[in-house]
């Protein structure tokens, strides 16, 4: 949208545009916390909805107390052990889920008979709400990290599996025929054609699967554990300590962003062969 020429004033220079996007994004965040502060902290506004001025803070927490809690966690170092457990669970769930999805996806995609045989069961397992398996995993694998990893794996596996399956199916028949004529045997076809093609689809779903591994870890902890950020949230909720719950959510969100950034970096490094949108590097 092009602004008309006449609107050139101070606003034209500071309005959100490509150059100052980050500034505006930070301002939005600050605005959000300010609004939260004003609405929740007792005594700033007269009670509008609740009959008691302190009730808003009870239900929604107070941003300053939330920040104080986050600061306290990191300053005292209490959070590190929990964060480490959650991230370790995420990592394990991601690696195991991706590898098993890759192997089984490749195997089924290259075996039409096995694929036809398993098709209804794969569909059933995929459409099942798998989070409901968490209590069973707690019984099977105990309250330690194994049950959380198992939950994460069930979430990650299907994302990767379907992408690998698709990736193998989408291999260009010409590229495949060409590799065969160049002399590739079935093993070499797998290594040189099928796996790279499948990997491009796996990477496309990497953001998704890392996110789901994280969800699996936190939900698993929330449903029963003795360590982890999900456990901290569960504990705080038990004592109606809403500020700590929000502090936990804030920390989880921040680390989800960090994980996403890591994935983006890995993706850039490994997917150089794919044209990026708008890329015009040609000769």
């Amino acid at each position: 949208m092009q602004e008309p020429e006449s609107s050139k004033g101070p606003w034209a220079r500071i309005r959100p545009q490509q150059g100052n996007l980050l500034v505006w994004q930070v301002l939005m965040m600050i605005g959000f916390f300010l609004l939260w502060h004003v609405l929740a902290v007792p005594g700033i506004l007269p009670p509008i909805y609740f009959d008691d001025a302190s009730k808003a803070a009870f239900f929604f927490g107070e941003p300053l107390k939330v920040f104080a809690r986050v600061w306290e966690w990191f300053y005292s170092g209490d959070i590190y052990a929990h964060l480490w457990v959650t991230l370790w669970e995420t990592f394990l769930a991601f690696v195991i889920g991706t590898l098993s999805g890759l192997v089984i996806g490749l195997w089924l995609a290259l075996n039409p008979v096995a694929s036809a045989l398993c098709d209804p069961y794969i569909k059933a397992l995929n459409s099942m709400p798998r989070v409901i398996l968490a209590p069973i995993f707690s019984v099977w694998f105990g309250l330690d990290i194994a049950s959380k990893v198992a939950l994460g794996v069930t979430l990650v596996f299907f994302v990767v599996f379907f992408n690998v399956y698709q990736g193998v199916r989408e291999v260009s028949p010409t590229v495949l025929a060409n590799a065969r004529i160049l002399g590739a045997n079935p093993k070499q076809l797998l290594r040189y054609v099928y796996v790279p093609s499948a990997m491009s689809w796996v990477f496309a779903s990497l953001h998704n699967s890392v996110g789901l591994a994280f969800v699996g870890a936190v939900v698993g902890e929330y449903l029963g554990s003795s360590r982890g950020v999900g456990y901290l949230i569960l504990q705080a909720e038990g004592t109606f300590d809403i500020n700590t719950v929000f502090a936990g959510i804030l920390v989880l969100t921040a680390f989800a962003l960090v994980l996403d950034l890591l994935v983006t970096l890995v993706e850039r490094r490994l997917m150089v062969w794919q044209p990026r949108q708008g890329e015009t590097e040609r000769i």
């Binding site: 025929a177 060409n178 590799a179 002399g183 045997n185 070499q188 040189y192 790279p196 491009s200």
Partner: peptide
């Protein structure tokens, strides 16, 4: 065989595409 359509492996560099047959 030289195909009518694109038959290079997009995930390999030009050089690696040329070496493919020898590697096989």
């Amino acid at each position: 065989y030289l195909f009518q359509t694109e038959a290079l492996m997009p995930w390999r560099t030009g050089l690696d595409n040329v070496t493919a047959g020898l590697e096989f």
